[in-house]
C-alpha cells in the first residue's frame, strides 16, 4: 500500500472513531438507569442521588460532558471510572490482554483444526471425515455459545474434574494453571468458528479441486499432500482469509459471554459490569477500544486478501 492510501485510511479511522464516540456517548446518556444508584444502593434519597450525580459531574449538560471527555481523550485520558476511581485507560490495559489472548488462541485452534478437516472433507466428499464433520459442524453451529460452554463445564470440570470451571491465574503466577484455565473458554469460543471455517473451506476446496490444473497435478503424479496444501489451500482460503478478521470481531462479542460464564477478568466482563453499574466512561472507553481493534482487523483483512489474490492487487495498483 502506498503512503497516501495509508494516510487516507488513518483519516477514515479517526472519522469512524469520532462518530462512534458521539453515538456511544449519546446512547449512554439516554440509557435508563443512574450511576449514582449503583453506588448508593436501594433506598437512596433524592438528595443523596443529586449530591452523588453532582460529584460525578453528571449534573452538567450532555454537550459539555462530551466536550470535556473529547478534549481529554485527545490527550490520551479517557476519564475515570465512577466505581473504582481508576483511570479508564488503566482498566482497559489491565483487562484487554486476556481477551486478546482468548480470541487469538481461539482463532488459531479453530483454524488449526478446520483447515485439515475442511481439506480432507473436500478431498473425500461423503467420506467418514466429511460426514462426521458436517453433522458435528451443524451441531456446533446451532449450539449457542453459552450452551456449549455450560456443557463443557459440566463434563470436564464438574464431572471429570480435569479442568477448572471458572477463573484463570495469571501466566506469571502459574503457567500450567493458566493454560488449564484457558482450555474450556477457548473451546467454547472456537467451536462455532471451527464449524464455520471447516464448512466454508470444504466448499471452496471442492470448487478448486474440480479445476483443470488440479487434474494436471494429479496426472503428473504429485502426492495428495502437495496437491491439497500447495495447490488447493491457497486459492481455497481466499474467502476464509477475508472472513477471519471479521469473525475475530464477532469473537470479541463472544468473549463477553465466555468471560461471564467462566468468570474471567477480560474486557467483555468489564463492559458487562460497567453496564450494570452505569460506569459510563468505562463503557465509552471499552467500546472505543473495541472499535479500534475492529477497524484495524478490517484493514488487516484487506491486506491479506490482496496478498492472496494477485488479481485484486493488480487491479488496485492499476
Amino acid at each position: 500500500m502506498t503512503l497516501a492510501s495509508v494516510m487516507r485510511r488513518a483519516a477514515r479511522l479517526l472519522l469512524v472513531l469520532g462518530a462512534i464516540s458521539i453515538v456511544t456517548f449519546g446512547l449512554l446518556a439516554v440509557m435508563p438507569g443512574d450511576p449514582a444508584l449503583a453506588l448508593l444502593g436501594p433506598g437512596a434519597t433524592d438528595a443523596a442521588v443529586a449530591e452523588v450525580r453532582a460529584s460525578l459531574g453528571l449534573d452538567r449538560p450532555l454537550i459539555v460532558r462530551y466536550g470535556d471527555w473529547l478534549l481529554s481523550a485527545l490527550g490520551g485520558d479517557l476519564g475515570t471510572s465512577y466505581q473504582t476511581g481508576q483511570p479508564v485507560v488503566t482498566s482497559l490495559a489491565d483487562r484487554f490482554p486476556l481477551s486478546i489472548e482468548l480470541v487469538l488462541v481461539s482463532q488459531i485452534v479453530a483454524l488449526a483444526v478446520a483447515v485439515p478437516v475442511g481439506l480432507w472433507s473436500a478431498r473425500r466428499p461423503g467420506g467418514i471425515v466429511d460426514r462426521i464433520c458436517s453433522v458435528g459442524g451443524l451441531g456446533l453451529l446451532s449450539l449457542p455459545m453459552f450452551a456449549l460452554g455450560s456443557l463443557l463445564v459440566y463434563v470436564f470440570a464438574v464431572t471429570l474434574k480435569w479442568l477448572p470451571a471458572t477463573g484463570i491465574p495469571s501466566f506469571g503466577d502459574d503457567p500450567l494453571g493458566h493454560v488449564q484455565g484457558l482450555i474450556l473458554p477457548v473451546l467454547s469460543l472456537a467451536g462455532w468458528q471451527f464449524a464455520m471455517y471447516a464448512q466454508i473451506l470444504r466448499g471452496e476446496a471442492r470448487t478448486v479441486l474440480a479445476e483443470d490444473y488440479i487434474e494436471t497435478a494429479v496426472l503428473k503424479g504429485l502426492p495428495t499432500r502437495a496437491i491439497l496444501l500447495r495447490h488447493t489451500l491457497k486459492p481455497a482460503s481466499l474467502s476464509l482469509a477475508s472472513l477471519v478478521p471479521i469473525t475475530t470481531g464477532e469473537l470479541i462479542g463472544g468473549a463477553v459471554v465466555v468471560e461471564t460464564l467462566y468468570a474471567l477478568p477480560g474486557v467483555g466482563r468489564l463492559m458487562v459490569d460497567a453496564i450494570a453499574a452505569r460506569d459510563l466512561l468505562v463503557l465509552q472507553g471499552a467500546v472505543l477500544a473495541v472499535a479500534v481493534v475492529f477497524v484495524m482487523l478490517n484493514l488487516f483483512a484487506d491486506v491479506v486478501v490482496r496478498w492472496l489474490d494477485p488479481r485484486i492487487r493488480s487491479h488496485h495498483a492499476g
Partner: peptide, 19 residues
C-alpha cells in the same frame, strides 16, 4: 474472594473444586 456473578457458574465452580 473470587467474584462470579452467575449463580449457576458459582455452583459449578464449587462442585469442580475451584472454590
Amino acid at each position: 474472594f473470587r467474584p462470579n456473578p452467575d449463580v449457576e457458574s458459582r455452583v459449578a465452580a464449587l462442585r469442580a473444586g475451584d472454590i
